[in-house]
Design a protein around this nucleic acid. Structure first.
Length: 263
DNA sequence: ATGGTCGTTTTACGA
Protein backbone atom coordinates (compact mmCIF):
# COMPACT_ATOMS: atom_id res chain seq x y z
CA UNK A 1 0.00 0.00 0.00
CA UNK A 2 1.22 3.50 -0.81
CA UNK A 3 0.07 6.54 1.18
CA UNK A 4 0.95 10.18 0.58
CA UNK A 5 0.27 13.49 2.27
CA UNK A 6 0.23 16.84 0.51
CA UNK A 7 -0.66 20.40 1.43
CA UNK A 8 -2.28 21.15 -1.92
CA UNK A 9 -3.08 24.83 -1.23
CA UNK A 10 -6.54 24.76 -2.85
CA UNK A 11 -7.83 21.51 -4.32
CA UNK A 12 -10.02 23.39 -6.80
CA UNK A 13 -7.19 25.33 -8.37
CA UNK A 14 -4.95 22.25 -8.50
CA UNK A 15 -7.21 19.27 -9.16
CA UNK A 16 -5.32 18.38 -12.36
CA UNK A 17 -2.09 18.15 -10.37
CA UNK A 18 -3.87 16.07 -7.72
CA UNK A 19 -4.97 13.55 -10.36
CA UNK A 20 -1.46 13.62 -11.78
CA UNK A 21 0.06 12.81 -8.39
CA UNK A 22 -2.40 9.95 -7.82
CA UNK A 23 -1.50 8.43 -11.18
CA UNK A 24 2.24 9.11 -11.23
CA UNK A 25 2.78 7.54 -7.82
CA UNK A 26 0.07 4.91 -8.12
CA UNK A 27 -1.25 6.04 -4.74
CA UNK A 28 -3.76 4.11 -2.69
CA UNK A 29 -4.41 6.95 -0.25
CA UNK A 30 -3.74 10.69 -0.54
CA UNK A 31 -4.19 12.92 2.49
CA UNK A 32 -4.76 16.55 1.56
CA UNK A 33 -4.40 19.74 3.56
CA UNK A 34 -5.57 23.25 2.74
CA UNK A 35 -8.24 22.06 0.35
CA UNK A 36 -9.75 25.53 0.85
CA UNK A 37 -13.29 24.50 -0.02
CA UNK A 38 -16.56 23.44 1.50
CA UNK A 39 -17.54 19.81 0.97
CA UNK A 40 -20.01 20.76 -1.77
CA UNK A 41 -17.26 22.63 -3.63
CA UNK A 42 -14.85 19.69 -3.86
CA UNK A 43 -14.03 18.93 -7.53
CA UNK A 44 -15.57 15.46 -7.41
CA UNK A 45 -16.08 15.20 -11.17
CA UNK A 46 -12.34 14.81 -11.74
CA UNK A 47 -12.34 11.57 -9.70
CA UNK A 48 -15.42 10.00 -11.30
CA UNK A 49 -14.62 6.63 -12.84
CA UNK A 50 -11.09 6.73 -11.47
CA UNK A 51 -11.66 4.14 -8.77
CA UNK A 52 -10.94 6.71 -6.08
CA UNK A 53 -13.40 7.83 -3.44
CA UNK A 54 -12.95 10.97 -1.39
CA UNK A 55 -14.08 12.81 1.71
CA UNK A 56 -13.53 16.49 2.45
CA UNK A 57 -13.90 18.43 5.66
CA UNK A 58 -14.14 22.12 4.89
CA UNK A 59 -16.22 24.91 6.39
CA UNK A 60 -15.20 27.89 4.24
CA UNK A 61 -12.27 29.12 2.13
CA UNK A 62 -9.77 28.57 4.94
CA UNK A 63 -8.02 25.37 5.99
CA UNK A 64 -9.87 22.25 4.86
CA UNK A 65 -8.60 18.66 4.94
CA UNK A 66 -9.39 15.79 2.63
CA UNK A 67 -8.77 12.12 1.99
CA UNK A 68 -8.73 10.42 -1.42
CA UNK A 69 -8.58 6.61 -1.37
CA UNK A 70 -9.08 3.59 -3.58
CA UNK A 71 -8.95 1.18 -0.62
CA UNK A 72 -12.03 2.45 1.17
CA UNK A 73 -12.88 5.37 3.43
CA UNK A 74 -14.66 4.19 6.57
CA UNK A 75 -15.43 5.52 10.05
CA UNK A 76 -14.88 9.15 9.07
CA UNK A 77 -14.21 11.59 11.93
CA UNK A 78 -14.23 15.36 11.53
CA UNK A 79 -11.91 16.79 14.16
CA UNK A 80 -10.65 14.90 17.20
CA UNK A 81 -12.08 14.85 20.73
CA UNK A 82 -11.34 18.04 22.63
CA UNK A 83 -9.79 19.75 19.62
CA UNK A 84 -9.15 23.38 20.60
CA UNK A 85 -11.17 26.12 18.96
CA UNK A 86 -10.08 29.52 17.68
CA UNK A 87 -11.54 32.97 17.16
CA UNK A 88 -14.43 35.03 18.45
CA UNK A 89 -16.81 33.37 18.34
CA UNK A 90 -14.68 30.28 18.94
CA UNK A 91 -14.86 27.83 16.06
CA UNK A 92 -13.65 24.25 15.64
CA UNK A 93 -11.69 24.73 12.42
CA UNK A 94 -11.41 22.18 9.59
CA UNK A 95 -7.94 20.93 10.43
CA UNK A 96 -8.30 17.22 11.19
CA UNK A 97 -9.99 14.41 9.29
CA UNK A 98 -9.72 10.77 10.26
CA UNK A 99 -10.77 7.64 8.40
CA UNK A 100 -9.94 3.97 8.06
CA UNK A 101 -8.46 3.16 4.64
CA UNK A 102 -7.27 -0.32 3.78
CA UNK A 103 -7.07 -1.27 7.44
CA UNK A 104 -5.00 1.77 8.45
CA UNK A 105 -6.41 4.54 10.60
CA UNK A 106 -5.27 7.69 8.79
CA UNK A 107 -5.49 11.31 9.89
CA UNK A 108 -5.06 14.26 7.56
CA UNK A 109 -3.83 17.10 9.77
CA UNK A 110 -3.30 20.80 9.18
CA UNK A 111 -1.66 22.10 12.32
CA UNK A 112 -2.28 25.80 13.02
CA UNK A 113 0.48 28.06 11.66
CA UNK A 114 1.00 30.10 14.83
CA UNK A 115 1.64 33.32 12.88
CA UNK A 116 3.91 35.02 15.45
CA UNK A 117 5.39 33.98 18.77
CA UNK A 118 3.30 36.52 20.68
CA UNK A 119 0.10 35.87 18.73
CA UNK A 120 -3.00 34.12 20.11
CA UNK A 121 -2.63 31.76 17.17
CA UNK A 122 0.69 30.53 18.57
CA UNK A 123 -0.91 29.56 21.89
CA UNK A 124 -3.70 27.91 19.88
CA UNK A 125 -1.09 25.94 17.93
CA UNK A 126 0.57 24.62 21.09
CA UNK A 127 -2.77 23.80 22.74
CA UNK A 128 -3.91 22.02 19.59
CA UNK A 129 -0.76 19.90 19.49
CA UNK A 130 -0.98 19.09 23.21
CA UNK A 131 -4.54 17.86 22.83
CA UNK A 132 -3.65 15.85 19.73
CA UNK A 133 -0.86 14.18 21.65
CA UNK A 134 -3.15 13.36 24.55
CA UNK A 135 -5.85 11.88 22.32
CA UNK A 136 -3.44 9.98 20.08
CA UNK A 137 -1.56 8.54 23.06
CA UNK A 138 -4.92 7.26 24.26
CA UNK A 139 -5.60 5.51 20.97
CA UNK A 140 -2.28 3.73 21.18
CA UNK A 141 -2.79 2.82 24.84
CA UNK A 142 -6.17 1.32 23.97
CA UNK A 143 -4.58 -0.79 21.22
CA UNK A 144 -0.77 -1.05 21.23
CA UNK A 145 -0.92 -2.84 17.87
CA UNK A 146 -2.98 -0.13 16.19
CA UNK A 147 -1.86 0.97 12.75
CA UNK A 148 -2.30 4.73 12.86
CA UNK A 149 -0.93 7.42 10.55
CA UNK A 150 -0.83 11.06 11.67
CA UNK A 151 0.17 12.95 8.57
CA UNK A 152 0.06 16.43 7.20
CA UNK A 153 1.41 19.93 7.45
CA UNK A 154 2.75 20.20 10.98
CA UNK A 155 4.04 23.75 10.54
CA UNK A 156 7.09 22.80 12.62
CA UNK A 157 10.69 22.25 11.56
CA UNK A 158 11.83 19.81 14.27
CA UNK A 159 15.60 20.27 13.83
CA UNK A 160 18.00 22.88 12.53
CA UNK A 161 18.66 20.60 9.54
CA UNK A 162 15.04 21.16 8.53
CA UNK A 163 15.38 24.85 7.63
CA UNK A 164 17.48 26.59 5.00
CA UNK A 165 18.64 29.17 7.55
CA UNK A 166 18.56 28.88 11.32
CA UNK A 167 19.23 32.61 11.56
CA UNK A 168 16.28 33.50 9.35
CA UNK A 169 13.84 31.63 11.55
CA UNK A 170 15.23 32.80 14.88
CA UNK A 171 12.46 34.63 16.71
CA UNK A 172 9.82 33.34 14.30
CA UNK A 173 7.40 30.46 14.50
CA UNK A 174 8.12 26.90 13.25
CA UNK A 175 11.50 26.50 14.99
CA UNK A 176 10.82 27.67 18.57
CA UNK A 177 11.62 25.36 21.47
CA UNK A 178 7.95 24.92 22.52
CA UNK A 179 6.96 23.94 18.97
CA UNK A 180 9.83 21.48 18.71
CA UNK A 181 8.90 20.06 22.12
CA UNK A 182 5.35 19.59 20.92
CA UNK A 183 6.55 17.68 17.86
CA UNK A 184 8.97 15.58 19.91
CA UNK A 185 6.11 14.91 22.30
CA UNK A 186 4.25 13.15 19.51
CA UNK A 187 7.32 11.01 18.87
CA UNK A 188 7.63 10.27 22.59
CA UNK A 189 3.98 9.21 22.59
CA UNK A 190 4.88 6.46 20.11
CA UNK A 191 4.43 8.16 16.75
CA UNK A 192 7.66 7.95 14.76
CA UNK A 193 8.66 10.04 11.75
CA UNK A 194 8.65 7.20 9.21
CA UNK A 195 9.95 9.31 6.31
CA UNK A 196 13.18 10.74 7.72
CA UNK A 197 15.09 7.43 7.75
CA UNK A 198 14.52 7.19 3.99
CA UNK A 199 15.13 10.89 3.22
CA UNK A 200 18.01 12.05 5.42
CA UNK A 201 18.91 15.75 5.65
CA UNK A 202 20.19 18.34 5.88
CA UNK A 203 18.72 20.33 3.04
CA UNK A 204 15.74 18.02 2.47
CA UNK A 205 12.58 20.10 2.46
CA UNK A 206 8.86 19.77 1.80
CA UNK A 207 7.91 23.46 1.58
CA UNK A 208 9.33 26.45 -0.21
CA UNK A 209 7.79 29.93 0.06
CA UNK A 210 6.29 31.32 -3.14
CA UNK A 211 8.21 34.57 -2.73
CA UNK A 212 11.82 35.56 -3.39
CA UNK A 213 12.67 32.60 -5.64
CA UNK A 214 12.81 30.40 -2.57
CA UNK A 215 12.56 27.14 -4.53
CA UNK A 216 15.34 27.67 -7.08
CA UNK A 217 17.47 29.09 -4.27
CA UNK A 218 16.82 25.96 -2.20
CA UNK A 219 15.40 28.01 0.66
CA UNK A 220 12.88 25.59 2.13
CA UNK A 221 11.70 23.88 5.26
CA UNK A 222 10.80 20.33 6.18
CA UNK A 223 7.42 20.76 7.87
CA UNK A 224 5.25 18.01 6.33
CA UNK A 225 5.49 14.69 8.13
CA UNK A 226 4.04 11.21 8.28
CA UNK A 227 4.09 9.86 11.83
CA UNK A 228 3.16 6.28 12.57
CA UNK A 229 2.56 3.92 15.46
CA UNK A 230 5.07 1.07 15.97
CA UNK A 231 2.87 -1.41 14.09
CA UNK A 232 2.57 1.03 11.20
CA UNK A 233 6.26 1.95 11.21
CA UNK A 234 7.16 -1.75 11.04
CA UNK A 235 5.44 -1.91 7.64
CA UNK A 236 7.30 1.02 6.07
CA UNK A 237 9.61 -0.11 3.28
CA UNK A 238 10.41 3.26 1.75
CA UNK A 239 9.51 6.93 1.53
CA UNK A 240 10.17 9.91 -0.68
CA UNK A 241 9.46 13.61 -1.17
CA UNK A 242 8.23 14.54 -4.64
CA UNK A 243 10.28 17.68 -5.22
CA UNK A 244 9.41 17.62 -8.93
CA UNK A 245 5.83 18.51 -8.03
CA UNK A 246 7.00 21.90 -6.71
CA UNK A 247 8.24 22.87 -10.18
CA UNK A 248 6.47 24.79 -12.90
CA UNK A 249 3.42 26.97 -13.22
CA UNK A 250 0.55 26.18 -10.88
CA UNK A 251 2.55 24.31 -8.23
CA UNK A 252 1.55 24.17 -4.57
CA UNK A 253 4.14 25.63 -2.22
CA UNK A 254 4.39 22.15 -0.61
CA UNK A 255 5.64 18.87 -2.09
CA UNK A 256 3.87 15.53 -1.63
CA UNK A 257 5.42 13.12 0.91
CA UNK A 258 5.02 9.45 0.00
CA UNK A 259 5.28 6.31 2.13
CA UNK A 260 5.35 2.68 1.04
CA UNK A 261 3.90 -0.01 3.29
CA UNK A 262 4.44 -3.74 2.96
CA UNK A 263 1.34 -5.90 2.53
C1' DA B 1 16.08 23.91 -16.23
C1' DT B 2 13.22 25.36 -11.05
C1' DG B 3 12.97 31.88 -12.05
C1' DG B 4 11.64 37.94 -8.39
C1' DT B 5 3.97 35.07 -4.52
C1' DC B 6 -0.43 32.74 -4.43
C1' DG B 7 -5.41 31.63 -3.33
C1' DT B 8 -9.63 33.03 -1.56
C1' DT B 9 -15.93 34.74 -0.47
C1' DT B 10 -9.96 39.42 -3.62
C1' DT B 11 -8.51 45.80 -3.15
C1' DA B 12 -7.63 42.26 2.78
C1' DC B 13 -5.95 38.52 4.78
C1' DG B 14 -3.70 34.17 5.65
C1' DA B 15 0.19 31.51 4.44
Amino acid sequence: MRIATWNVNSVRSRIDRVVGVLERHDLDVLLLQETKCRDDQFPALALEGSGYDYVNHGLNQWNGVGIISRVGIDEVERGFPGMPTYGDPAVAEARALGATCGGVRVWSLYIPNGRELEHDHYRYKLDWLAQLRSVAAGWLADDPKAQIVLAGDWNIAPTDDDVWSVEYYAGRTHTSAPERSAFNGMVDAGFADVVRPHTPGPGVYTYWDYTQLAFPKKRGMRIDFVLGTPALAARVTGASIDREERKGKGASDHAPVIVDLSD
